[in-house]
């Protein structure tokens, strides 16, 4: 069974009624890493929000199945608990909520959802330390309020640490490389690579090819004007790097 199957997905902005996704088809099998590349305004981020269940988008046509579940029927938190993880392009600052409290609440929500026992503060701390260590990160940032005053790199690392703790089966990384210098990009890419395994699928959404120097995708898709225009192997990314998106948009991007 496919991990994620998107069929003819159409979605509009609820308020304006403007169609952004115009028929997306995509299948991700367990263990596969897919990259979606495309110019700004192609609908890449909308796809990630629609998959994660953000309010404000209306799916007008098509279906999305996640394992044996109809993903579109689920609330955002249920999707997360089923195993969908969206790494945000701009992780949100939440003043007053300590990172540790937030992540424990998140993990325990998932455990509760699956009928498992919740972890107490000590058990959780131990788990977080192990996960951070396996990613060669500290857990210091969890002592601060969620993302508040974090540098761009810290915010992205925090996303990767959350991913490691929550152990999703599908990771959607929305423009994970934006705002990162090369060192930070490497750290984040190492984290993602460490989390690659045969059961987990990944969807990398990116504008630039450079992330793919560090994370090797199995498939690359070019998205433009709300549709996947072309699919191929990782060599497609190199081709795009050379030619740009002009072939797909009719203008240089």
């Amino acid at each position: 069974m496919a991990l994620l199957e998107i069929k003819n997905l159409h979605a509009s902005l609820e308020e304006e009624g403007k169609e952004i996704l115009k028929g997306i088809d995509l299948v991700i099998q367990p263990g596969e890493v897919h990259a979606i590349m495309g110019p700004n305004g192609s609908g890449k981020s909308t796809l990630s929000y629609v998959l994660a269940g953000r309010d404000g988008y209306e799916v007008t046509e098509g279906e999305v199945t996640f394992g044996d579940k109809d993903l579109l029927e689920l609330e955002a938190n249920e999707r997360a608990n089923e195993g969908v993880f969206l790494a945000f392009q701009y992780p949100v600052e939440i003043p007053g909520v300590p990172g540790m409290t937030f992540l424990r609440e998140a993990l325990n929500s998932k455990r509760k959802y699956h009928g498992e026992e919740e972890l107490d503060a000590m058990q959780f701390l131990k788990l977080v330390r192990e996960k951070a260590k396996s990613l060669e990160m500290g857990d210091d940032m969890l002592k601060r309020a969620v993302n508040v005053g974090f540098s761009g790199g810290e915010k992205k690392r925090n996303e990767i640490l959350q991913m490691a703790v929550l152990e999703p089966t599908l990771c959607v990384l929305d423009e994970t490389d934006s705002g990162l210098d090369i060192d930070a990009l490497k750290i984040v890419a190492d984290g993602v690579n460490a989390l690659r395994n045969e059961n987990r699928g990944m969807l990398l959404i990116t504008h630039y090819q450079r992330l793919l120097d560090y994370i090797q995708p199995d498939f690359v898709h070019v998205m433009a004007a709300g549709k996947i225009q072309r699919s191929g192997g990782k060599e497609l990314a190199l081709e795009l790097e050379e030619k740009g998106y002009a072939d797909f948009t009719g203008k240089a991007a």
């Binding site: 994660a52 269940g53 953000r54 309010d55 609330e75 955002a76 938190n77 997360a80 608990n81 993880f85 969206l86 945000f88 992780p91 949100v92 939440i94 003043p95 007053g96 909520v97 409290t101 937030f102 992540l103 609440e105 998140a106 993990l107 929500s109 998932k110 959802y113 309020a145 969620v146 959350q162 929550l166």
Partner: peptide, 26 residues
């Protein structure tokens, strides 16, 4: 903020409470 919390599996109800608590405790 609400969506960020929900995208991590926290229910709407709990997410709202977390944010209200943070706002007040501040």
């Amino acid at each position: 903020q609400l969506f960020y919390l929900k995208a991590r599996g926290i229910s709407e109800h709990d997410a709202r409470n977390m944010l209200i608590e943070a706002y007040l405790r501040d």
